[in-house]
Lab assay of single mutants.
Amino acid sequence: MATGGRRGAAAAPLLVAVAALLLGAAGHLYPGEVCPGMDIRNNLTRLHELENCSVIEGHLQILLMFKTRPEDFRDLSFPKLIMITDYLLLFRVYGLESLKDLFPNLTVIRGSRLFFNYALVIFEMVHLKELGLYNLMNITRGSVRIEKNNELCYLATIDWSRILDSVEDNYIVLNKDDNEECGDICPGTAKGKTNCPATVINGQFVERCWTHSHCQKVCPTICKSHGCTAEGLCCHSECLGNCSQPDDPTKCVACRNFYLDGRCVETCPPPYYHFQDWRCVNFSFCQDLHHKCKNSRRQGCHQYVIHNNKCIPECPSGYTMNSSNLLCTPCLGPCPKVCHLLEGEKTIDSVTSAQELRGCTVINGSLIINIRGGNNLAAELEANLGLIEEISGYLKIRRSYALVSLSFFRKLRLIRGETLEIGNYSFYALDNQNLRQLWDWSKHNLTITQGKLFFHYNPKLCLSEIHKMEEVSGTKGRQERNDIALKTNGDQASCENELLKFSYIRTSFDKI
């Protein structure tokens, strides 16, 4: 039985969820670079991206490699990797027998973001014989899940209580170790020597080791999670996991709180800001991140802002960003909400898709409305799209047979046209069989910064309504002859009103 693990408890099935942008060198404390989270699957090609990484700022997932063999891993080693800020997950990587050479110096898994409450997941690794993470000293947050690894031993010899604050939620089941077939031998045991430290858990006094050649490092209890030197002297209180010299914040392997210019500090002093819960960055760093993602459509890219001495992905609820200094300031009234469309555009074809934009005031991208039916549609669209004030790209209304009016965009005031449909149009209306009105132009103002209007096959939309939009939106004169079809717009509506004058002759039985 794995020490510190839980057996036999019912657990939810383990679901495996399925960018080499360097964020800056980590400095003297770390020998390499800070790398983003990685999802490495199918083959070993991307694994080489770990070569210079000291910190993975995010998670590391290595999974679904069915053609790899043990010899493929023999020359692979990433000794610079010290810390993973989120979680480490391995799933069905064939041929991998140990992690001792792959990650010989991995010391800390912070667990800032977890995989279903777990910071370390080893699942269905069919050839893994031992973990071998002999320098792993601290899992700051989260638990361990090690399950269905039929060859995995050296679990009962690990004292997880020396690595985690609590072992109650560890789930370590259905491994070879369960069948008591392992016969784990710690260093020196074969020669009758006791080389590794022994600890007591559940009444068992057991030597602690990761492999037959690597003991588990056990520091004096007084050192807590700070770690200790090879001689057993406690590291500085700002260290986490390990250090090369005692009581020196510049000799830590990793930091308990924050890293700044080669030393570990309790908090980031001005003019620095907390970033990702582990390091200090200056304003320029946060500003660069903001600008890199301002026009990016890459998933996970955030326009970072500053709030409460932190550089964070977005302002919290009730705050909006001051564009001059990136500071989050309290909103006066309802907060603006910028919604970034991942692929640059979004099609609204149902109430469900409209709900995804609920509360958005600025759309960074283009909207395509293609709704053919739905219950209580006008009210639903207004509830979900009615706060949109600005669209950076274009607005396209296409084959939306259920629409009679666009009044559900009740606050839309600006279409920038930074991206144009077919390279020309910022407003595009095609084949809307029941569209009769755009907006009530006596109450609604709309500016279209650039781009043209396109109207074709809107049989109940009168040309007068379209011409009014040209005047109000500032697009009059931009359109070419064929942009607004004269014969297919309003051709099934009563669009022309003329005053009919009647004269009559009164007659009676005795007068003409």
Rank of each mutant, 00 (worst) to 15 (best):
I56V: 06
K100L: 10
K310P: 02
I56Y: 00
G58T: 01
S296K: 07
T68N: 02
F258Y: 14
D39S: 09
P220S: 04
A156D: 01
F116P: 01
M137E: 08
H302E: 08
H48D: 04
D177R: 11
N257G: 03
Q303L: 09
C243P: 00
H59S: 08
L120W: 02
L96A: 02
Y272K: 04
V305W: 03
F78V: 04
N105I: 02
H302T: 13
W278V: 04
L60D: 01
K129H: 12
S323I: 06
M65T: 03
S284R: 13
I306C: 03
N52P: 14
P330N: 09
C182S: 12
C301S: 06
G37C: 02
K80C: 04
L90N: 00
D159H: 13
G142W: 00
P79T: 06
H307P: 01
F205M: 07
C153P: 00
G333E: 03
F66G: 09
P104K: 01
L60P: 00
K217L: 11
N325E: 11
L128G: 01
I40M: 10
A230H: 11
I146P: 00
P330R: 10
P313T: 08
G227Y: 12
L90P: 00
S284C: 02
T140S: 09
S317G: 08
K251S: 05
C268G: 00
C209F: 02
I122K: 00
L88G: 00
I163V: 12
P70F: 07
I201Q: 11
V93H: 12
N282L: 06
N202V: 04
V55S: 02
V305D: 02
Q204C: 02
L81T: 05
M137R: 10
G300H: 12
H127V: 02
K129G: 04
D159S: 10
G227V: 11
S317K: 03
L96W: 02
N175Q: 08
C239N: 00
R256C: 02
P246Y: 05
S323V: 14
D184S: 11
P197A: 07
K310R: 10
D261A: 09
Q216S: 06
R256M: 06
N202H: 12
Y134N: 05
N195L: 12
S161Q: 13
S244F: 14
C215D: 12
Q299V: 07
R145V: 13
L131G: 01
I84Q: 00
V121L: 03
S323T: 11
L240G: 07
P330F: 11
I201H: 15
K310G: 14
I146K: 00
T194F: 14
L128A: 05
N149L: 00
N179V: 12
D288R: 15
H307M: 13
C315P: 04
C280M: 00
C182P: 13
D288S: 12
G58A: 00
N295A: 04
V34G: 07
R69F: 13
L81H: 00
L131T: 11
C264I: 00
G192W: 14
P70R: 11
V34N: 04
H226D: 10
L63P: 00
Y87G: 01
I163K: 02
R162Y: 09
C215G: 11
M137A: 07
D39L: 06
P316T: 02
H307D: 15
C219S: 03
P249Q: 08
H214M: 14
H127T: 12
L152R: 01
H48Y: 05
T320F: 14
C286S: 04
V167R: 06
L128K: 00
C215H: 00
Q303G: 11
L64W: 01
T189V: 10
R113I: 13
I82D: 03
E314M: 05
E207A: 06
K193L: 06
V55I: 13
L240R: 05
N195D: 07
V206Y: 03
E238N: 10
E147I: 15
G32K: 05
K148D: 11
T229Y: 03
H236I: 01
R279T: 03
R110E: 04
E238Y: 04
G188M: 15
N135V: 01
N295Y: 13
P36S: 05
F91N: 14
P220D: 14
C264V: 00
L29D: 00
C239Q: 01
V281S: 01
R279P: 00
G232A: 06
E238A: 12
H226R: 13
N105L: 02
H59R: 08
S237T: 06
N135H: 06
C315H: 02
L128N: 01
S213W: 05
L131A: 14
C301Y: 09
T107E: 04
E314L: 05
I62L: 06
L99H: 01
L90C: 11
I40P: 00
K148R: 15
Y134P: 07
T189H: 14
H28K: 06
N149V: 03
L60Y: 00
L174P: 13
P330V: 09
L106S: 00
Y134F: 13
D184T: 04
I82R: 12
K217A: 15
N42A: 07
C252D: 00
T194W: 12
Q303H: 10
C153Q: 08
A198S: 08
D177G: 15
T68A: 12
R110S: 08
N138I: 13
Q276D: 15
N295L: 12
W210K: 08
T221P: 03
Y94D: 07
D72V: 07
F78P: 00
S284T: 08
D86F: 00
C328D: 03
P36T: 09
F123S: 15
C311I: 05
I62Y: 00
D178W: 10
P79F: 03
C182D: 11
D277E: 13
D184R: 14
M83D: 02
R298K: 04
L233R: 14
V108I: 15
R141F: 09
L114W: 02
N242W: 12
V144Y: 02
K224H: 06
G241E: 02
T157N: 12
I201K: 07
D248P: 01
V281K: 01
P187S: 07
N282E: 07
C255N: 01
S317A: 05
G111L: 02
E33G: 12
D159E: 12
Q276K: 07
Y171L: 08
L102P: 01
Y134V: 15
N325T: 04
R162E: 14
S161Y: 11
Q245F: 05
L64M: 13
L81M: 11
C328Q: 02
P316Y: 03
Y319W: 15
V144F: 02
I146R: 01
Y273P: 02
D277L: 05
T68P: 07
S98T: 10
A190I: 06
E180M: 11
P36L: 08
M83Q: 07
R110N: 03
N325I: 00
F123I: 15
N170M: 08
Y134R: 13
